[in-house]
Design a protein around this nucleic acid. Structure first.
Lengths: 196, 196
DNA sequence: AAAATACACTAACGGACGTTAGGTGAAAAG
DNA sequence: CTTTTCACCTAACGTCCGTTAGTGTATTTT
């Protein structure tokens, strides 16, 4: 077999991580084998280990790439001043966009993080908890300012995030509505549900 | 080791299926081993096969038990006459209740059905698709009757169902709000998002 | 009480898995 | 051109998996 083809800017490891995300999404982390991954990459299984340390490393890589992106977005958002409802909408759109355009990695991060090994697992769980608290704080702020109706902020966050992860079904469906239309519909329902 | 303890009304197989649901929820279907399951049940792994045919059978059992319950509820609901928004709310409450009180099996059905083996897999997928179409039809009916705001019904269903599966996070969280309160909050946001 | 059945055990099978060792040739560096 | 490094290969390792075979013992049925 030939060499792993790169995009000339990315490393061979990047290619492997990318293909791993697709495979893990399709089969689940545990059910996906390194031999399958190797075949997709176009190489023998053992050869993968010239570029990565372990199967687990692939999962870390995927999960923390995604987590970092979302954390960074939230940092930005918190720095801004302005309407809380608008901030929520902004964050929702970012999540929707991630789920639509970086589907595989976001999905894997969402669904397979349980299989992370320590100490990454604990680290990830802490980040996740903190992220949701910060998200909830924005909503609570909105409630205080009477921009958002009086609901349990934690529950609202839980609904928002999981509703968005439902875009998985959209990807699987045959007659997909347009991505932008999907976004507008989701915003209509979710933000609509927060308004007084 | 002794025999498997039954509830005197249920069979030993029921006990195994029940424990399997808990284990599959915690570890995922693929990551859960028959030896682990055996330990939880209080027996050697080989002994399980006096009661079940295979590991896969356990997954079928769990998934179709849950699917049947939901299909039956939808049958009832369709037979009724009345306000569409009320029907949606009723169905949502049924889903929420399932997720709160039959958490393990519903979760496994939701997240691990991919690992069903044929022909169960195709059967399950068909049932799932049909269920969602019927749910969407109720919403579309509500839109036609001006009881529900104009949105894409398929997207609405996707949001509702996934938002509810987010109750998983509620189960994992340390400071849980009361189950009934959770339900009311979810209904407030989700049904609120459908109102004009 | 005897016979049949149900349910547990131990032992072991074949196969798939993640991963390592060691070798080969091509590409990069000097 | 020579040397070094990189990226691949084949072969195989130890482990865990789902499952079967065969046996003994408790329970249920006759």
């Amino acid at each position: 077999m030939g060499r792993i083809k790169t995009d000339n800017n990315g490393s061979r490891k990047d290619v492997i991580v990318e293909k791993a995300a697709i495979l893990f999404k399709e089969k689940g982390f545990k059910a996906a084998s390194m031999r399958e991954l190797a075949e997709v990459v176009g190489v023998e299984a053992a050869s993968l280990y010239n570029h990565i340390k372990s199967k687990n490393e692939l999962l870390h890589e995927i999960c923390f790439n995604v987590a970092n992106r979302f954390n960074h977005k939230l940092d930005e958002l918190e720095a801004e001043e302005g309407n809380s409802l608008q901030k929520v909408e902004d964050l929702l759109r970012f999540h929707i966009d991630g789920m639509v355009h970086h589907f595989e990695e976001v999905f894997v991060c969402d669904r397979e993080w349980k299989h992370l090994s320590e100490p990454y697992l604990s680290n990830f769980q802490n980040q996740r908890r903190s992220y949701r608290k910060r998200f909830a704080a924005i909503i609570e702020d909105g409630i205080k300012k009477k921009e958002i109706k009086k609901i349990d902020a934690t529950t609202a966050v839980l609904i928002m995030l999981h509703a968005i992860s439902g875009i998985e079904s959209w990807h699987r469906s045959k007659q997909k509505i347009d991505g932008k239309e999907l976004e507008e519909n989701m915003i209509a329902i979710l933000v609509g549900g927060l308004k007084k």
